[in-house]
Design a protein around this nucleic acid. Structure first.
Lengths: 99, 99
DNA sequence: TCTATAGTTCGATAAATTTCGAACAATAGC
DNA sequence: GCTATTGTTCGAAATTTATCGAACTATAGA
């Protein structure tokens, strides 16, 4: 599997980012990545089919929220937190703080 | 026209709020309300049909973002900024600051 | 009462999204 | 090479969403 294309942080739009976060499955992924730092798709699937999760990870990647790196057969995902904090100051903190 | 029902601020969910903000027409409305304080639907339509705008204002109201009051035949809309700041600290500031 | 104005509601259509099984691709380990 | 594991891609079905014209409601003002 080839490495993924991730958008430049400056090309990330608020619109796409908010849309990506407005889905409960994806918000859950983001919260867990914020907590756990890095995790495989597998570890975050909550019992859902792999194809569904692959779709959600793709949306998160294309929205600029998540970085995915290959590690053998495993895809390790992490929040692009530092970049996001620079691009949209205070946003992720506010989102992750909200309950 | 009867006054509108607005959700209690504690019943507002981050999910619905983010979804409401992930549409460019609605984000534009929110930004202008943040700037101008209060405005009629009419003043914010950007040339779009009334029925389309009515739909978007409804989504914004139901998401808890916008308060609408009746003033004669006019509906005056405003951001529920103070309530939102309490409910989701830092969120609206981050959203409105983002460019 | 008649008219103009501001918005809502209804109904239909088009487009985007979510979901998930099945087939496929890439890597690790034997 | 063979097999198991991870995750992607494809295709289809169901749901949600956006858009907008037409009919309707409510109020102000003459």
């Amino acid at each position: 599997m080839r490495p993924f294309k991730h958008p430049e942080i400056d090309a990330v739009t608020l619109e796409h980012l908010l849309h990506a976060l407005s889905d409960p499955v994806r918000m859950d992924i983001v919260r867990r990545l914020a907590d756990e730092g890095e995790a495989s798709c597998n570890a975050l699937d909550g019992g859902r089919p792999k194809s569904s999760m692959s779709h959600h990870f793709r949306v998160l990647r294309e929205a600029g929220l998540v970085w995915t790196r290959n590690d053998g057969t495993v895809h390790m995902n992490s929040l692009r937190r530092k970049e996001l904090d620079k691009r949209f100051p205070g946003l992720m903190k506010a989102v992750l703080t909200a309950k």
